[in-house]
Amino acid sequence: MKKQLTHLIKFSLIITFVFTFLFTPLHEASAFERVPTAGVAINGEMVDGINPIKLEGEMYLPIIYLSKILSYNDIRFESPTKTYELTDGSTSVRLTMGGSRARRGDDFINIDPPRWIDETGYVTLDAASALFNTYIYFKPENGSIQIEKPASKYEVQSGDTLWRIAQAHHTTVNALKAANDLGSNVIYKGQLLNIPPREETKEIEPIKEKKPVDDRNTAPPGDVRSAIIEEAKKYIGAGYEFGATYAQAPSVFDCSLYIQYVFGKHDIALPRTSREQAGVGEAVDINNLQPGDLLFFTTPSMYSDGRVGHNGIYMGNGDMIHASSSRGVHIAENFMDISYWRDNYLFSKRIID
């Protein structure tokens, strides 16, 4: 009888815990304090302001405002699961309130669980750093939020391993250990690691991926290629905005929205971001390009993890048409003769075949 009573008590405690976990609201208003508006500086230049909060001794930043400051302007929110999906046109970041794992592109990363407070999502400075490939810290001398972009350092999160960090930054464990003079694979939460130099970080997985293209255009491939190039030229002069939304097209694009829009006009459905677009179709050597092939590049001024950061459409004769942050939609003639594109070129993919 005593043993049955013990089992009954244990069962009751489990039921109480599960019920509490499932039905307790995420709202935590009573636990936080507001912090005076803080200036936000990117690489030492003050660009905006933000309203942090403090919770359990940690400083948190509102996700939506931080995303916009970092040019992740395409923001989507799934209310039933309290999940945000944010994109800057290159990479999508996906995080759920209360979850300790988030997705950045195709990589899963560990973060401090985001909090849902006053109908808004908040993240710690460490979590924000990991999500956006930045290094974010508070500067008490002037009460500002400092953002190093792209990050040269990474703060180890709970659950991290060197292998997982290497995967997320598109490098190797050996390169990480060398950059930090590590004699073993042991790391600890809060430890600051140097990210290996640019030449040792490069995203190469997409070239191996061969996801099918949703192509409903029944015309001969040669005709489709010609039509795509003619379509692309219609938007020369259109403006540029990181994370531009479909509603802004065709007057404003980012690089991947431009490509998605142009191909969509000819019944070829491509994913939204340049990283996702890099995963479709077949790899093609740069010496065998045809008009309509997609070209992929890194963007070292924005990302230190060597990720796909930009893409364009090959036109033929060595030319590329694309939406760039500096000039909007334009043609880069003989793009491989331009040092910036030559130095940051990754690979090309064929999706019209």
Rank of each mutant, 00 (worst) to 15 (best):
M97K: 06
G99H: 06
I63V: 13
T218E: 15
G306D: 11
F296P: 02
G98D: 14
G281N: 05
V35E: 12
T201Y: 06
I351W: 02
A128C: 01
T120L: 01
K10C: 15
R307L: 13
D337A: 14
A323L: 06
F21S: 15
M302P: 10
I111R: 09
E333G: 05
R76A: 06
T124L: 02
V280M: 00
K265F: 01
E28W: 06
Q4Y: 12
T16I: 13
G312F: 10
A102S: 13
T172L: 07
V213E: 02
H330R: 12
S152V: 09
G222K: 03
L5F: 10
R164W: 03
R104L: 00
G121F: 06
Y137W: 13
P221C: 01
E282A: 00
R216L: 13
K233E: 12
A29Y: 09
T172I: 02
T16P: 05
T83M: 06
E200I: 00
Y154L: 00
Y345Q: 07
P25M: 13
I147A: 04
F23S: 10
Y84L: 05
P220C: 07
N344P: 09
E28C: 07
S274F: 09
A130I: 03
Y72F: 12
F263K: 08
K233H: 04
A244I: 10
P197L: 04
K233R: 12
I111D: 03
T87L: 01
A238S: 13
K54Y: 01
E119P: 09
F21T: 14
V280W: 02
N110P: 13
L257I: 14
R275G: 02
G222M: 05
D214C: 02
I147Q: 07
D74C: 12
P80R: 10
Y246R: 04
I75A: 00
Q157V: 00
L70F: 04
S301C: 02
Y261S: 11
E148M: 12
S90K: 06
D106V: 08
I268Y: 04
A130V: 04
A179F: 05
Q167L: 04
F296K: 11
N73C: 03
E276F: 06
R104D: 00
I63N: 00
K54V: 05
A29W: 02
A249T: 14
T171D: 04
V173N: 03
I228R: 07
N174D: 14
N142D: 15
T172V: 01
L13A: 13
T16C: 15
Y135S: 15
G328D: 09
I9H: 07
E203P: 03
G309D: 07
I165P: 13
P52R: 05
P114W: 05
E209I: 10
A278I: 03
A238D: 09
E231N: 11
A278T: 01
L125G: 08
S324K: 11
